[in-house]
């Protein structure tokens, strides 16, 4: 699906996995190109982690294939994984070793990593101060950084991060976002799974949404967002007459919102609609003409989260 001339870094084809007679992953396919940040979204239990584990050969797929830079992860383990840096779930490192010793440990498992390279990645993640302390004294944020340092050691072409914002404070999340953008600018491809959908929306270029082991939507973040209409909240009085005016428009749909989402005006005087934002002024004009007081108009930007909830509506873990 990528633009012409782009280099394919990760190609997942019809991935399926059956665990104890149950299909955990039913059919997942996607491609990631060079320099792309790919978001992987799904509710808990949808098969995100299982998929990631298959990408890095921790789990063998029942069917389907995974290619990293043209190498099959299953049959050409060494060649394929040379190009991959990853953090699967938590950044679990050896707590009884120092940060530096951890990096040396993993450097020894990669071909030709010099001391300079270790120093380089330490600087990239900004850990110079504490790198010679035992990992057990690190905060979660620092472990996350050390995990990323470890993943970057072998100059991978694909970086897989599983729930990277887990346990980070807002400042840390912001830093991570900038960090990830910078990595992508240098040509690294990133695969990021998260349930913090708003974060993915800010971080990723492309996104795959999965549910019950199936991809239900893949595309560029912008494209996916365009497909949906906006939610507009009308603060009007009297409410009943206002509703009649709104209903007179064919393209406007009244929707129910829970109280949580109404934060600007009293709930009793607020009507939520699903409509095209371009029509707001026209509707407002009609309201005024009908002698209805409009106290507020709030256009809610559709978030990936809303879309995600709509797409995965009625989800139950079975």
């Amino acid at each position: 699906m990528g633009t012409k001339g782009e280099v394919l870094v990760l190609s997942v084809k019809h991935l399926k996995k059956k665990i104890s007679n149950k299909w955990i992953i039913k059919d997942i396919s996607f491609d990631i190109y060079e320099g792309q940040i790919f978001g992987f979204l799904g509710p808990n239990g949808s098969g995100k982690t299982t998929t990631i584990r298959m990408l890095v050969d921790l789990i063998r797929p029942t069917e389907g294939s995974i290619y990293v830079c043209g190498k099959n992860v299953q049959t050409e383990h060494d060649e394929a994984l040379k190009n991959v840096g990853c953090i699967v779930e938590n950044p679990e490192l050896y707590s009884y070793l120092t940060g530096w010793e951890n990096l040396e440990h993993f450097a020894a498992m990669l071909p030709n990593i010099s001391k300079q390279r270790i120093q380089e990645v330490v600087e990239i993640v900004g850990m110079d101060q504490r790198i010679h302390d035992k990992v057990k004294t690190y905060s979660l944020g620092m472990r996350q950084r050390l995990g990323i340092a470890q993943a970057l050691l072998g100059k991978p072409r694909l970086l897989i991060l599983d729930e990277p914002t887990n346990g980070l404070d807002p400042q840390g999340i912001k830093e991570l976002r900038i960090f990830i953008r910078n990595l992508a600018k240098e040509g690294l491809s990133l695969f990021i799974s998260s349930h913090l959908l708003s974060e993915i929306q800010l971080m990723c270029d492309r996104v795959a949404i999965i549910r019950k082991g199936e991809v239900i939507s893949v595309g560029n973040v912008d494209e996916l967002l365009e497909q949906s209409t906006s939610t507009v909240l009308w603060g009007i009085s009297p409410v009943e007459q206002g509703k009649e005016v709104l209903q007179s428009f064919q393209s406007i749909e009244l929707i129910q919102l829970n109280d949580m989402e109404i934060d600007c005006s009293p709930a009793s005087q607020t009507v939520a609609t699903q409509m095209n934002p371009d029509e707001v002024s026209k509707v407002n004009e009609q309201m005024v003409k009908s002698g209805i007081q409009v106290t507020s108009i709030e256009i809610k930007k559709p978030s990936l989260e809303d879309m995600f909830l709509t797409l995965t509506e009625g989800e139950k873990i079975d």
Binding site: V56, D57, V88, N90, E92, L93, Y94, S95, F106
Partner: peptide, 14 residues
């Protein structure tokens, strides 16, 4: 039990 097996087995080493 430490979870480090995931890192250990995702290196380019059989």
């Amino acid at each position: 039990s430490a979870g480090t097996i995931k890192l250990l087995l995702t290196r380019p080493i059989k």
